[in-house]
Design a protein around this nucleic acid. Structure first.
Lengths: 218, 218, 218, 218
DNA sequence: GATGAATGAGGGTTCATTCAT
DNA sequence: TATGAATGAACCCTCATTCAT
């Protein structure tokens, strides 16, 4: 979304108005990525036509090949770049010292605002849908996203168990259980929203309540 | 590999063994469905070539069209026929009067043996992957599978809440939470099994334990 | 389905009612020809499917191949057999000694009742349409139909000229001019009948009047 | 024969010689139309393969689809564009004040030089052959060609009758009779030229003589 | 003979990729 | 660098023909 190198500096030229060549090129690259994300989300890898991507991006078909080696490279670029920015956020939660409920609520907020309410929800569906056909994508996400998030969660959950905030030790063993409802909401709404929309925030809050059910009122 | 040279053998039987024409035709239909399921599972709808389906089924390409109108009809037939048989089983659980834990264990067993350990796990991934592109499929599964199962679960969960087996009333409101971990295991293993296989039975048992966490050992 | 050899000869059997095997076979052959004519007329050679011919004839597709070597043979059989019966009639007109107008009227009547009002009009269109692709058909019709009719007409026209019934010697040189309006009516109505039907009998009568315009009322 | 090895030559020019892209594209379109006309003429609509059209035009198969939506659109474009340019000429004859014989001779000349001696003769056969299968084509030609020409001829013939140049009022009623021999020559030569070529100019002149047979030398 | 399920070559159409401008 | 016309391999589907029953 912003120029990457900006070597020149002075003159403005080209049709873009005030941008120099490098900035224009970067802007084109971003436009292609954005358009491709929309098209891949709507149709999956195979059903997406680069013609449509180009039209949506406002560039010529050949221009795509100036920025990406081929259709698959474009696809992988998108799929890889969308989720990784969130990983750091989630990993950082490991380092703050607040009650688990607070962390859980932050995770929910992050998930709703950065995934469910953005194109990232489609990325998740794309990974599920195309992963088996693109082993590299599955491998990348396991290595760069899933395993790192799971590791961080394990630390957090372990600490919560030790503090007595969570009674279920199994949760620390299977941090996947923490995210299962989040995955569910993404998939449910992608398929069934028109029939019966699912209020993600409510579902995820209910999920936290279940996990945190204290031995309170004895 | 096909036709032309077969000189048959025992004179009394065609290549089908002891089958008559109708049975052979039905067997071919099944072979096609089986092959198509395998190919669609591996590559999704668009990337699957009917040539490969035919080869895998051991029939000629044209034979597919004797049984199915076109590629999409074949796809829908597969996707529609695989899950519906399970719906009745799940609905029947509503009518038996046993503790919720017993029902939950039956659901886990059913899910593991009839979904995770069969091709049905691929069907679920196919629905997630192709549903947005085939609205009929999403609509069909909402109507014939999901909404019916959700309704049955709601009854069961409601009863469990009333009996005090479950404290979390939210569960009855969001029966999706009951199945979220099951969906998670399907997707996890389809993507990451080679990196870190998930023991579905253990995960689901842990999930039940969490839901049923009694105020017991205080 | 039925006994295999049936040497006898007397009894009637089979599904046909009172027909013996040979008669049934012949009836099937006729049914196929009739159905094929209808289908070829509607769609031309290439667009006609033997499936449709078989269905219309009430036989199985394979049965067609018991009577005809292949699709082209069936086509040629139809195209060849339809017009030849008329050739004799036209040739015989050479031998009767009546005024030309009487002969011309007979030709008109024959053409209207045996061509325009029957499937033969479609055969003519088929020959025009497919002739260039089936040189044998063009050759056959030139040899067996057109050249013979033209020869007979030439004799008749020559005699009419000598008798002073027709002043235009060119007619005897180009007997095609005699038939041009007949061909026109066939083609016109096959293409434009729904927009502006042409009264064939009226057109052909007018044509005769023109040819026979005497120097009468001076 | 195509692409791949061409290394261009004079550096300044592509393979098209001195043409710019638009001109080259138009030239390709024309080449496709020309090739398609030849192929359709030889085999009719159904029997023509776009592969052959492309090869004859010297383009790739896909190039056809840059210019025409599909096979039928290509066919209709050809069939529609070939005859309409002649309509205006024929209609204009209505406005010139010369003896009918002169007009008739112009029509003959036009027909021979612009139809019989060009590809248009094949178009006429194509319309006859495929018209019933493509109602739009029949409708188009009735509306844009035939009805307009017939109307113009009616005016001309009517005037000739009033002037006493033609005695046969029926001609004005059935202007089709004027063109019947022309149609005949097209069809005759398309089918039988190799057996017995018909001298179109001679036939058509004879036809005019017949129509104009004056009450002269009594 | 009669059947019709099965075959598989063939053709229309699409679309990722290239390359002359 | 950007363009988009051109390419041609690939794939769905049809249908003439075959052959086991």
């Amino acid at each position: 979304m912003s120029g990457k190198l900006r070597k020149s500096g002075t003159a403005s030229a080209g049709r873009g108005g005030g941008k120099d060549r490098a900035a224009q090129s970067a802007a084109r690259r971003e436009a292609i990525l954005k358009a491709a994300l929309a098209e891949f989300s709507a149709g999956g890898f195979a059903a997406t036509r680069l013609d449509d991507v180009a039209r949506r991006a406002g560039v010529a078909k050949g221009t795509i090949y100036l920025h990406f080696a081929d259709k698959e490279a474009l696809f992988q670029e998108i799929v890889r770049s969308m989720l990784t920015p969130l990983v750091g956020h989630l990993e950082n939660l490991r380092n703050i010292d607040v009650p688990f409920r607070a962390i859980a609520e932050q995770i929910v907020n992050l998930f709703v605002s950065e995934v469910l309410e953005t194109d990232r929800k489609n990325i998740i569906r794309l990974i599920v849908a195309e992963g088996p056909r693109f082993p590299k994508i599955a491998e990348f996400h396991y290595r760069e996203v899933v395993s790192r998030v799971m590791a961080a969660m394990q630390v957090i959950l372990q600490r919560a168990v030790e503090r007595g905030e969570i009674r279920h030790k199994a949760l620390a063993q299977f941090p996947q259980l923490l995210f299962a409802p989040a995955l569910m909401t993404v998939i449910w709404n992608s398929l069934f929203e028109q029939f019966s929309p699912l209020d993600a925030r409510a579902v995820l809050r209910a999920h936290i309540d279940i996990l945190l059910s204290e031995r309170t009122k004895p």
